[in-house]
Design a binder for these strands. Structure first.
Length: 420
RNA sequence: GUGGGUGUAGCUCAAUGGUCAGAGCACUAGGCUGUGGACCCAGGGGUUGGGGGUUCGAAUCCCCUCAUCCACCCCA
């Protein structure tokens, strides 16, 4: 019989990696809480239309990367490829815009994209998604980047770059689009196939191309950044000023663009060369028109998503101070009767005790204790029972003590020796 | 979706087309019948990813397929 395995691009997360996930969530929640963000959970499965409308129907995500299927009721449903759409839907459905001036929300969970897997890219991946609605002030953009950098500092992540740019408002983009298309049309023969495709669909992406000759062609081209309208330019300049106030280092990258249609003005990416080809591990920006486009009031928004798997790859090994592990080795049926009371007593004292289910020889149990990396081992056999004691061995120093055989008092007695 | 690499024991990997596919680690047990790591000995473990073909003979060569890794693309 063939073994059943995970679907392509889907993974089991365990061991050190899941520890990393927990640490990232813990640190993130700490700063999100301090800055007034509320956690919510939104469904993993939503109507397909939600994503088509928010992300944009000509984006790669919507065109070919969504897990979309028809449910038993005949509706087209989709596993969320990103979190913002669902959070916006919640914001509108819950009427938050009428209840509070500014809403700061975050959500944690899995996202799904039907891509070909590679380093740092999976079909199921996890994000911590941060959203702010209700203020167009660039102070918010700087604040969330500052928050992200505090998280990274706490997680011990360094050696990354924060790149920022502005993609302007729809008006800036429309004005600029004509310029850039005509520039590249004159140089069509020098562009790669992918860029020819981008030219009419999403010309800004040409600036993102990695082909040397495309970079060369676009070097002389006009940049959207240089033809921002007055208010977008001002917004960005003030944003840079706020970043400075927060002490956040960033480099302006005029080539930086986003793959989702809803971004306006500020965009940013935290990247690291240690991640392989998928270098961005936190990315986001401002989306001033999304809420309105989704049928709500004209409410600006800003936010980012942390790629949890990618961030885990940057954290390396974290050694955390562990509580000591105790092991109970018993020899004979009389000793075995003490197992349950001792275990009960340790667990209710909040202490970690392991033991072998099958008694076996003391040698075998000691070997097992060593294998489990136990710090201390209790040894109980007929000798000890006769004398009313239990032996406690420090596995590192080989020191041994005799403690009174009292299942209720044992955890406390053992702790005294550890503290000493 | 396109391209390249790799699939052999739980893990890391050997094996010129030619005995019964091996080693290290891990696991189990013994040496040591009440004391772990080192050492020694033994044992359990494999449809060589799957299917088809070539051949007297295939882990090895060919085709298909699946999985996986890396890159393109895309994005967190």
């Amino acid at each position: 019989m063939a073994k059943i395995q995970t679907l392509r691009g889907f993974r089991d997360i365990s061991g050190e990696e899941i520890e990393g996930f927990r640490v990232i969530e813990e640190v993130s929640r700490k700063y999100l809480g301090l800055l007034g963000f509320s956690e919510i959970e939104v469904p993993v499965l939503e109507k397909t239309e939600l994503f088509v409308r928010s992300i944009g129907d000509t984006t790669d995500i919507v065109e070919k990367e969504m897990f979309t299927f028809t449910d038993l009721g005949g509706d087209s449903v989709t596993l969320r490829p990103e979190a913002t759409a669902g959070v916006v839907r919640y914001y509108l459905q819950a009427g938050l815009y009428a209840k509070e001036r500014v809403s700061k929300l975050f959500t944690v969970g899995p996202m799904f994209r039907h891509e070909k897997p590679q380093k740092g890219r999976f079909r199921e991946f996890h994000q911590i998604d941060v959203e702010v609605y209700g203020s167009g002030d660039s102070l918010i953009d700087a604040e969330i980047l500052w928050m992200a950098s505090l998280m990274l500092r706490d997680l011990g992540v360094s050696g990354y770059t924060l790149e920022v740019n502005s993609v302007g408002c729809p008006q800036c983009r429309e004005d600029f689009r004509g310029k850039v298309v005509s520039y590249f049309e004159e140089r069509k023969d020098q562009l790669c196939e992918d860029c020819l495709r981008r030219l009419y669909r999403n010309p800004l992406r040409i600036f993102d191309c990695k082909q040397a000759h495309c970079i060369e062609v676009s070097r002389q081209s006009p940049f959207l950044f240089d033809s921002l309208c007055g208010s977008c330019k001002e917004h960005f300049d003030i944003f840079l000023g706020h970043l400075g106030d927060f002490g956040v280092e960033a480099v302006v990258n005029k080539r930086l663009v986003r793959g989702l249609d809803y971004y306006t003005k500020t965009v940013f990416e935290f990247t690291s060369g240690a991640l392989g080809a998928q270098q961005a591990f936190i990315a986001g920006g401002r989306y001033d028109n999304l809420v309105e486009e989704m049928g709500g009031p004209k409410v600006p928004g800003s936010g980012f998503a942390i790629g949890v798997e990618r961030l885990t790859m940057l954290m390396g090994n974290r050694s955390s101070a562990k509580e000591p592990l105790y092991f109970f080795a018993y020899v004979g049926d009389r000793a075995r009767k003490y197992l349950v009371p001792v275990l009960h007593s340790f667990v209710t004292s909040g202490m970690h005790l392991k033991y072998a289910y099958e008694g076996k020889s003391l040698k075998s149990q000691m070997r097992y204790a060593d294998n489990l990396k136990a710090d201390f081992v209790f040894i109980l056999g007929d000798d000890e029972i006769e004398r009313g004691i239990v032996t406690l061995r420090n596995m590192e120093t080989k020191e041994q003590w005799e403690l009174p055989l009292d299942p209720v008092g044992l955890p406390g007695e053992a702790k005294k020796l550890v503290v000493r």
